[in-house]
């Protein structure tokens, strides 16, 4: 079955070639050739499957056709839009950043009249209750 050259007379690396090793090789060849038809058929199918794989082009970025890149790009754009969407929707009612709030509080504290107003809260509450409502 195999097309190998005749047994190497220098085999093994040391000493004379074992004459019986050639007999073993012939026996093994005969053993391999003695496969039944069903097994040969399965081997053939296995080989054809592998060859079908070989016929496919190798995967590479540059070899990707437009029909692959286009949907991939569209998908990425859609994902980006979905990720940004809530932020864009809530922009009108968005809470000011913490740093902005701190500056506003600081400005409020620095106004003395405002502080006095807060200190007299009880007086204004009393005034509000005791003043009759118009109408």
């Amino acid at each position: 079955m195999s097309n190998k050259p005749p047994f190497d007379p220098q085999f093994p690396e040391r000493g004379p070639a074992p004459h019986w090793a050639e007999s073993v090789r012939r026996e093994l060849d005969g053993h391999a050739d003695a496969l039944d038809a069903a097994t040969r058929s399965r081997l053939n199918r296995a080989r054809q499957t592998a060859l079908t794989e070989a016929a496919r082009p190798r995967w590479s970025w540059s070899a990707r056709p437009l029909r692959v890149w286009l949907p991939a790009g569209a998908g990425a754009a859609l994902a980006l839009a979905l990720a940004l969407h809530p932020t864009m929707l809530d922009r009108g009612v968005q809470e000011p950043p913490t740093a902005t709030r701190a500056v506003e509080d600081l400005e409020l504290i620095q106004q003395p009249e405002s502080l006095e107003l807060f200190e007299d809260q009880e007086f204004y509450a009393w005034l509000d209750e005791s003043t009759p409502s118009p109408g």
Binding site: A32, L35, A54
Partner: peptide, 22 residues
Amino acid sequence: AASAKTDTLDRFLRGVERRALR
């Protein structure tokens, strides 16, 4: 070239498959 490569692969696999199986 692809066809030639497939043929070469076929010959190689055909040549080793039975021994590999055993």
